[in-house]
Simulated assay, not measured.
Amino acid sequence: MDLFNQRKQTNFLPYDGEVLYYPNILSLEDARAFYQNLLSGIAWQQDVVKIFGKQFITARKVAWYGDDACAYTYSHQTKIALPWTPELLSLKNKVEEITNEHYNACLLNLYHSGDEGMGWHSDNEKSIVPQSAIASLSFGAARKFVFKHKESKESVSLLLEDASLLVMKGRTQEQWLHALPKTKKVKDLRINLTFRKMIL
């Protein structure tokens, strides 16, 4: 019996979407083991993004894994998925059990400190199944995560802690932007896995 699915989760968004937060989905020991494995066992690369026609190499590192070498295009760059590692498959199965959803790919981000973040955006690329759930699993340093409604500009923030899971569902990507603000207060690494359902 899945205790997580027995809990009644609170929607963090006031309207136009659904965001659920599950703290501590892994034991401290398991979270540390996965963190070390992800740090050393993932094929991390610096990301290349295009802003106003100019290319920039980010300090943040990324990796893209998934089923059947599925592709993901964002910021005018296309990534071909690497095959799942045993550890990533284990985490995917855990996340699918908690969320009652299916995912076929995962975008991983490595933030070396609070000096690295992510600006306002929505995960609404055409290669993602519309209104499908996106599950964000965090390891390492706790970081503030912020949502902003595209029309009303109302904002909602929460702290993403080590071994926590954030699930974005329904109209969230259509109606809300989200960001990981930079901060001088955080000096430690954070690894984030966003499990997605891509159109194959």
Rank of each mutant, 00 (worst) to 15 (best):
Y15K: 11
M1F: 07
W64T: 01
E161F: 03
E174H: 10
D47T: 02
E116R: 00
M1H: 09
T78V: 06
P14S: 12
Q36Y: 09
N37A: 10
W84Y: 08
K184I: 08
A31P: 03
E96H: 10
M198K: 09
D30P: 07
E96M: 10
L38G: 00
D162L: 08
V146W: 05
L107N: 01
K187R: 12
Q77E: 12
N24P: 09
S155E: 15
R60F: 01
R196Y: 04
G41L: 02
Y21A: 12
Y74Q: 13
Q9H: 14
L3V: 12
A141L: 06
L26Q: 04
P83A: 11
Y111L: 01
W120G: 11
L110M: 06
G117H: 04
V95A: 07
C70W: 06
N24K: 11
I128D: 10
L39I: 03
V129L: 04
F34L: 02
N93Q: 11
F52K: 12
W44D: 08
G140V: 01
Q77C: 11
E97Y: 06
Y15I: 03
I199Y: 04
G170H: 08
L26K: 06
L189E: 08
V62H: 05
P130C: 07
H112Y: 07
D68S: 15
C106G: 00
Q131V: 05
P86I: 06
K153M: 15
A69S: 15
E154A: 15
A105D: 03
R196L: 05
H149T: 12
A59S: 13
E87D: 15
A179Y: 03
D16M: 04
K184G: 14
I128S: 10
F34T: 00
A141V: 04
A142G: 10
H121N: 10
F56M: 07
Y35Q: 13
T194E: 04
A141W: 05
K182F: 03
L160I: 07
A31D: 03
P83K: 06
K61I: 05
Q173S: 09
M198H: 13
S90N: 13
V129Q: 03
T58L: 15
N37M: 08
I57L: 02
W44K: 03
V129K: 05
N109Q: 06
W84L: 01
L38P: 00
P14M: 09
G66H: 01
M118Q: 07
K92E: 01
T78F: 07
S75N: 11
K153W: 13
D68L: 10
F147Q: 02
L177S: 11
N192G: 08
C106W: 00
N37P: 05
A31G: 13
K50A: 09
W176E: 03
K169L: 08
V146Y: 04
Y65P: 05
E97L: 13
